[in-house]
């Protein structure tokens, strides 16, 4: 059963690894590389961001917060997008690993969303003079944070783990409409938050000495997601084996 590989990392290639044992072997092989790449990229990004990149003309040294804030915000959206793909995979094609991927990703996405809000607040205070402002982008990111929390609460609210995964999948897909709102809110509404300067078509409106640490941190965070995802997926699969063993033991009395 071959599906053409799409830009998503879920549909095509993962079908070959629907077999849990095979997937585990792949995960175990990938793990040290992912962890190593994570450490390298983050170390390089931190070095460039804290020591090499120049201070900003207007914002001075506070611009260095950007090197954690922006990658964290990107990851908050990226992880959710992955969860949405996994949820669709679970509900439409009943992909056996999809539910676990969504469940394992949620804490990572929640952490990045929290960091985006927290570092954003610390960046906003010297820049705008306030810890918080109810503009379109901040409000929708806060909503994203609550959707993540709701997802985790829902997935754990059922005795049957599969029911929890499927219910959370529906919730994730309903909340996906939040993503374009977050992305485009700074364009649609006159907000305090600055518009996009990296992902514009054409040259990014940001100097390369600042772009490199930004991209390296983003890459490092992505490897972090993969690394932690592998850890949590393996833990989930162990948990279901332990549950199955408990059931067997209970049946034998």
């Amino acid at each position: 059963m071959n599906r053409t590989a799409t830009s998503s990392q879920q549909s095509g290639s993962l079908h070959r690894f629907a077999n849990p044992a095979r997937f585990l072997r792949l995960a175990q092989a990938v793990f040290p590389w992912s962890a190593g790449a994570m450490a390298l990229c983050i170390a390089a990004g931190l070095y460039l961001g804290l020591f090499v990149a120049p201070p900003d003309y207007q914002q001075g040294e506070s611009v260095r917060i950007m090197y954690v804030h922006v990658p964290a915000a990107w990851m908050a959206l990226f992880v959710y997008a992955n969860m949405a793909l996994a949820s669709a995979s679970l509900l439409i094609w009943r992909h056996p690993l999809a539910g676990l991927i969504a469940k394992a990703s949620a804490p990572v996405g929640t952490a990045f969303t929290f960091l985006a809000l927290f570092t954003g607040s610390l960046w906003g205070k010297p820049m705008w003079g306030t810890w918080w402002v109810w503009d379109a982008r901040l409000t929708s990111v806060l909503i994203l944070f609550f959707i993540y929390l709701g997802h985790m609460a829902l997935i754990n609210a059922f005795e049957n783990p599969e029911r929890g995964q499927k219910a959370a999948a529906v919730l994730t897909l309903v909340g996906v409409v939040n993503l374009p709102i977050i992305k485009f809110s700074v364009d649609w509404w006159n907000t305090l938050h600055q518009p996009a300067s990296v992902t514009r078509i054409g040259t990014p409106a940001i100097h390369s000495s600042m772009l490199w640490p930004l991209l390296l941190m983003a890459l490092g965070f992505t490897f972090y997601y993969v690394t932690v995802l592998i850890l949590r997926l393996r833990a989930e699969m162990l948990a279901s084996r332990l549950r199955a063993m408990n059931r067997l033991a209970a049946e034998e009395g």
Partner: peptide, 20 residues
């Protein structure tokens, strides 16, 4: 509908619904 059969469904529903 999502909270049907869940533990503490009454508390879960506001958590799911309020962000939306």
């Amino acid at each position: 509908a999502l909270a049907l059969g869940a533990r503490r469904g009454g508390v879960l529903i506001p958590l799911l619904v309020l962000p939306l």
